[in-house]
């Protein structure tokens, strides 16, 4: 017998882990591409860096959307 809270917690943790895997992969690819670009053209380092920070934040926000959704839905499931 699984309670709805337990099920929700399991699904929530699993979906957060899944989105973290995706986010980590994407951020790794982004950072490696940026470092490649800087290694090739060191004079463009400033532009690459600002674009890098911006795109990393976009990627990270997807994982955090999942996190926020879990917290917002947690009140509904248990309430």
């Amino acid at each position: 017998m699984i309670s709805s809270i337990g099920l929700f917690a399991a699904v929530g943790i699993f979906s957060l882990a899944l989105s973290a895997i995706g986010g980590a992969t994407a951020q790794g690819r982004t950072a490696s591409a940026a470092f490649d670009a800087v290694a090739r053209q060191p004079e463009a380092a400033g532009n690459v860096q600002s674009a890098l920070i911006l795109s990393l934040a976009f990627i990270e926000s997807l994982t955090l959307f999942v996190f926020a959704m879990i917290f917002i839905l947690a009140g509904r499931v248990t309430g």
């Binding site: 809270i5 917290f71 917002i72 839905l73 947690a74 009140g75 509904r76 499931v77 248990t78 309430g79």
Partner: peptide, 13 residues
Amino acid sequence: STHEFALAASEHG
């Protein structure tokens, strides 16, 4: 309780 914690988290502040 779990319920109170979830409620406190979802209505944080």
